[in-house]
Simulated scan of single mutants.
Amino acid sequence: MISVARSVTAVCALGAALAACGTAGTPGPARPDHTKPAASPSATRPPELAPGPGGLAQVFEHGPRTLGKTVALTFDADMTADQGPRAAAGEHFDNPDLIGTLRALKVPATIFMTGRWAEQYPAQARSLGHDPQFEVANHSYSHYAFTADCYGLPTVAPDQVRGEVERAYAAIRKAGVPHPLPYFRFPGGCYDREALRALSGVGVTAVQWDVVSGDAFATDADAVVRDVLDGVKPGSVVVMHCTRSAAPTTERVVRTVVPQLRKQGYRFVKVSELIGETNGHR
């Protein structure tokens, strides 16, 4: 369930155009612009994974397989730093219908949000951050890759890794999310040992997945549904995207997948619950 240091070629087609999710809310006062990851929505800090050998950040991929049928749906809000003009021109890097469906179906979820997306959609970021059904985590500021050759994404230099993570936390809090979690997802899912070493000093747990939905740029919702249903096991983490421009089928997929998994006895949880279960059964 945990991978410590290995080169990963991400298994979902994430390009620089991938983007995000949200639902409108009324913006409130921004919290102080601290860069240290904050506590969870509860009064206590959420569960994390201790650093691995050599102090490298550990990578969480799925929860225990033997503690019942739990599954975490995760949604990446990956807007790149240079996509502002496209958003201004009317491209949708959000998906309010998807978030509305998750709320209607009472499905908790974890949103991995880029700082750039939070700046573009502050009211939606705040609404997610104040809704106990969701937890918001870090997906970098710019959605630039932490390794070379990652789906054509621009690359972050090793000495800029900490700044990317901290700048994202600052932007997310400024948008009105009071307690972003100390979890981080690599843009494009791409990382290597050097990226884990650079991340180790930031104080976050890297979170990947074990089920690729295939929703990125997909036009066939039925195919995505099959990929999810075929891949889910107890403790699974499913990666999806909440954007109308680059993942247009996701809301339909959720409306189909959720009742079918519930019929199979699955219970939907947030990533933090799976990590907590992992800490107690390692």
Rank of each mutant, 00 (worst) to 15 (best):
I2M: 04
A5V: 09
R6K: 12
S7E: 13
T9V: 15
V11D: 03
A16G: 12
A17W: 12
G25P: 02
P27W: 01
G28E: 11
P29I: 11
P32W: 13
K36D: 15
S40Q: 00
S42V: 09
T44E: 13
T44V: 13
R45C: 06
G52V: 06
G52I: 05
Q58V: 03
H62W: 07
H62P: 00
R86M: 06
A88Y: 08
A89W: 13
A89F: 14
G90T: 04
E91S: 05
N95W: 09
R103L: 09
P108F: 12
A109Y: 10
T114H: 00
A118R: 00
Y121V: 02
R126G: 13
S127T: 12
L128M: 09
Q133D: 15
V136K: 00
Y144P: 00
A148F: 00
D149R: 08
G152P: 03
D159I: 01
D159P: 02
A168E: 06
A168Y: 05
Y169H: 01
R173V: 03
A175Y: 02
V177E: 02
P178Y: 05
H179M: 00
P180K: 00
P182H: 07
F184L: 02
C190A: 11
D192P: 08
L199Y: 07
V207N: 09
D215N: 06
A221D: 08
D227E: 15
V228N: 08
D230W: 06
G231C: 03
V232R: 02
S245I: 10
A246C: 12
P248K: 11
P248E: 09
E251Y: 07
K270V: 06
V271A: 07
N279R: 15
